[in-house]
Amino acid sequence: MAFTGHFEEDEATVANDPISQFNISKLLQLDVGGYDISFTNSSLFMVATVAASAAFLIFTTSGRGLIPSRLQSISEMLYEFVAGLLRDSAGSEGMKFFPIVFSLFTFILVANLFGMFPYFFTITSHIVVTAALAFGVIGMVIVYGFYKNGLGFLKLFVPSGVPGVLIPVVVLIEVISFLSRPISLSVRLFANVLAGHITLKVFAGFVVSLSGLGLGGVIGAILPLAFAVALTGLEFLVAFLQAYVFAILTCMYINDAIHPSH
């Protein structure tokens, strides 16, 4: 892919450019069999995300108090939230998929929240990452759907009660609709995070540029500063909601795979 180190820039231009926060830089050069698998800052933050969420869950639940401590109840709320989500949309049969839905939700949520720290890299702002997650989910749904229902899974594309003449057209539309799922799943997460971070950076950049213009500029900078503060709040909402949307759609697709037509 294109982002393999062509983006090395001189440090001076980094400050005011809203895009440079998404640059990938190699931390450890690795080359296996002609493939570039270098350890980048993106990989570093993925590892950090997994480590932080795993450490938090292990640490907070290690007490196993009957009366949960504050941190333990955060973990329990997280568990119950995802479990409720999955049970509501896929039924108790879907609970065998709980580990993957929980992991996805926690990973995306923690990655998004990590991105809210200044100078941190936001891994969900790269479509490669979100597309890998989305195609993983859809691949799992397809494999499990065929494993569970055999060829009956294909009935997903043939709605009942359609006149025979229209069936080819309807099947084509249904197939396109199914294929658009991973695209919309990945594009939504990536686009929201990317756009939010760029907007935030642009407004923050206004503050810096304006306040360099003297007293009038400093007064004028109040407005973009207020916007930047408000946008930060909005970004926290988006960080949570995108993880929520990703998780709930995963649950709905799992529901498609496990509930066969009779």
Binding site: I176, S180, R181, I183, S184, L241, Y244
Partner: peptide, 25 residues
């Protein structure tokens, strides 16, 4: 309302994805 906001995020991307996938095929 939480579900409502989540749904609002869905609508536009669902539409774009459908057109893009159709055009791509």
């Amino acid at each position: 309302s939480k579900a409502g906001i989540a749904q609002a995020f869905r609508l536009s991307s669902e539409f774009i994805a459908g057109v893009v996938v159709g055009g791509g095929i």
